[in-house]
Design a protein around this nucleic acid. Structure first.
Length: 193
DNA sequence: CGATTTTGACCGGCGC
DNA sequence: GCGCCGGTCAAAATCG
């Protein structure tokens, strides 16, 4: 596997991958599919039937290129706490709001959910005001790992997907690595400080 | 049959 | 206090 990942960050703000598709989603399927061309069944954000089940599947978004990296939240340390069971425990009273940093980045892709190597379970979907497309909420399905992420497609540009990560994974990936996750982890080094 | 999605209800924060 | 809004829950439905 391409152990050496070389991404070039243009001033444009986009990241291109070299060698074998870095942003390739899965080790199988084809790589480099033309985006913009209707090649397959992709998003069907139709009115009424926003998303179906294209989650957990690997979509050929090899052409995905990063556009922008937005870092939100303060530097108030990431709190990997909350690693309890469920939500049974209320908020920590007196703990105030623990603002958790979020790592958001935009991606140009037709795929809503990028495969970052983790297993996610969707737990909600809400329509945001002033936005045509709903926002999906996912949570990492690992015992004790409460990493959340939300995916939203821009109303303006359907080609842009904003993925926001919240928290950090503290467990190994469950799938063949060498994906977005690698890039992500790299980015976090810089962003979470 | 188990895991995951769907979808409306529910809840807490905020602004008025 | 009320309504808006974003986020989460949870029961039922669905998928593999």
């Amino acid at each position: 596997m391409g152990s050496s990942h070389v991404y070039t960050n243009n001033f444009d703000g986009r990241v291109d991958q070299t060698s074998d598709g870095l942003l390739r989603l899965s080790s199988t399927t084809k790589t480099e599919d033309h985006i913009g061309s209707s090649s397959g069944e992709v998003l069907v954000h139709k009115d009424g039937h926003p998303y179906q089940q294209y989650y957990q599947q690997y979509y050929p978004s090899a052409n995905a290129s990063m556009n922008n990296i937005v870092v939100g939240g303060d530097q108030s340390s990431v709190d990997p706490h909350r690693a309890n069971n469920n939500y049974s425990e209320k908020k920590n009273k007196g703990e105030k709001k623990m603002k958790k940093p979020k790592y958001a980045f935009q991606t140009r892709s037709q795929v809503d959910v990028l495969d970052d190597g983790y297993r996610w379970r969707k737990y909600g979907q809400k329509a945001v005001k002033a936005n045509k497309f709903p926002r999906s909420y996912y949570r990492c399905t690992y015992q004790g790992c409460n990493v959340k992420k939300q995916v939203q497609r821009l109303n303006k540009d359907e080609g842009i997907v904003v993925t926001t990560y919240e928290g950090m994974h503290t467990h190994p990936i469950d799938k063949p690595s060498d994906n977005f996750e690698h890039i992500l982890s790299q980015m976090q080094i810089y962003t979470h400080i």
